[in-house]
Design a protein around this nucleic acid. Structure first.
Length: 249
DNA sequence: GTCGGAATAT
DNA sequence: CATATTCCGA
């Protein structure tokens, strides 16, 4: 028992994810109606453009004065998967590993408020199709505009390849990349729900990843991520519904 | 009952 | 076509 131990201990303490310390990396993504229902006032600073999943612009119902509806009962507008959101998604999947890349986990990792398991599940489904298409018939012909969203985010490359495994290595690479960007102090797990994270990651399969616990959602934000960029203002007038989308069709 | 995933619906 | 919702098997 030397300093090593105490050091280790100290580190453990530091790594402990305290909710208060690293709470909300996502404060937006609350649809107007919800915000109203909760009486939440959104204070947005120009330099604080957080990851916000944009919903389809819903025609404000002047008659919806009774915003006393329960949040869970409310019907959320269509979620629009902006490239940023998708990137978060991909990063989550990449870092979690195929094995743990299931809707719930992904959702938690992304830590985007308002995002539901169903949202992720649906997107994941499509994403898998995309991966398959890309793998199987790479030359078959896959370049329609459809893939643009997915193309916007690089695919970790080893997503569906079975035989050779390079999980740890890849993971490290990813970490290096992110850390290298700005030497951010990687905040520990952001899961407020320690129960889940602890339980899950504690009994994870043979420690494919041992250091996952130090990285989490804040990564994208804390990094030099210039997310604060693309202003989504392209209006796609589809049928009778006007939605806010990023890319033109 | 929950969850993941494919099928189906909008 | 993109996303949501439903259905069904673990």
């Amino acid at each position: 028992m030397r300093e090593d131990d105490s050091d280790w201990f100290t580190r453990c303490e530091e790594d402990l994810p305290f909710p208060e310390d690293l709470i909300p990396l996502s404060q937006s993504l609350i649809p107007p109606h919800l915000a109203l229902a909760f009486d939440i006032h959104h204070q947005s600073t120009p330099s604080q453009a957080n990851s916000s999943a944009e919903f389809a612009a819903d025609s404000a119902d002047p008659l919806s004065s009774g915003a006393t509806e329960s949040a869970r009962t409310l019907k959320r507008p269509r979620l629009v998967w902006t490239p940023q959101l998708h990137k978060r998604f991909v990063d989550a999947v990449a870092n979690l590993g195929i094995k743990n890349a299931v809707p719930k986990t992904i959702m938690q990792f992304m830590s985007v408020e308002g995002l539901t398991r169903e949202n992720v599940a649906s997107h994941l489904q499509k994403y898998r199709v995309y991966l398959k298409r890309m793998q199987g018939g790479g030359g078959g012909g896959s370049d329609p505009v459809t893939d643009r969203l997915f193309a916007s985010s690089p695919v970790p490359a080893h997503f569906l390849l079975p035989p050779s495994f390079v999980p740890v290595a890849t993971l490290q690479q990813q970490q290096q990349q992110m850390v290298a960007v700005g030497n951010v102090q990687l905040q520990p797990t952001q899961f407020h729900q320690r129960q889940i994270s602890a339980a899950r990651f504690g009994s994870l399969t043979n420690g494919q990843f041992s250091s996952l616990q130090r990285m989490s959602a804040p990564l994208l934000q804390s990094s030099v991520s210039n997310y604060v960029d693309e202003l989504e203002s392209a209006k796609a007038n589809n049928g009778g519904r006007t939605v806010l989308t990023l890319f033109p069709t």
